[in-house]
C-alpha cells in the first residue's frame, strides 16, 4: 500500500499515526507540509530512519523545493516529481491518504 502524508510532524500526529499503521513493504510519500518529516536532524529524524527498514520513504520534490528544503532531506528518502507520484499509485495496489 502507498500512504501519503500531508501534515508537518511538528504540528499534527498524522505522520506518527501513519507510521504506526503502515505494514512492512509499504511506501510513505510525504507531500505538502508532510515533507518536513523528511528533514535531516530533527526530533522525528530518528523515527523515520528506524522505520526505513520496513517502509520506503518518498518526498514530493516540488514541495521540498518550494519550502527551501533542497539539500536538507535525509539520506534514504527518495525524491519524486508528480509523474513519480502517479507511478507510485500505480505500483502499489491501493492508496491511503492520511489527512
Amino acid at each position: 500500500m502507498l500512504h501519503t502524508v500531508n501534515k508537518s510532524p511538528f504540528q499534527k500526529n498524522t505522520f506518527e499515526s501513519c507510521i504506526k499503521h503502515a505494514a512492512k513493504g509499504s511506501a510513505v510519500l510525504l507531500i505538502e507540509d508532510g515533507v518536513y518529516a523528511a528533514l535531516k536532524g530533527t526530533s522525528v529524524s530518528a523515527e523515520v530512519q528506524q522505520a526505513m527498514g520496513d517502509i520506503t520513504f518518498y518526498a514530493l520534490e516540488p514541495d521540498v523545493n518550494a519550502r527551501g528544503l533542497k539539500g536538507k532531506v535525509m539520506d534514504g528518502v527518495n525524491l519524486v516529481d508528480y509523474a513519480g507520484f502517479v507511478d507510485l499509485t500505480v505500483k502499489f495496489d491501493r492508496v491511503q491518504s492520511w489527512l
Binding site: K20, H21, V95, Q96, S97, W98, L99
Partner: peptide
C-alpha cells in the same frame, strides 16, 4: 490494536480518510 487495524487496512480496496 494498531497492528490489527494495520492488517485490516491492508485487506481493503478503497480507503477514505476523514
Amino acid at each position: 490494536t494498531a497492528a490489527e487495524i494495520r492488517d485490516l487496512m491492508e485487506e481493503q480496496d478503497v480507503l477514505l480518510t476523514f
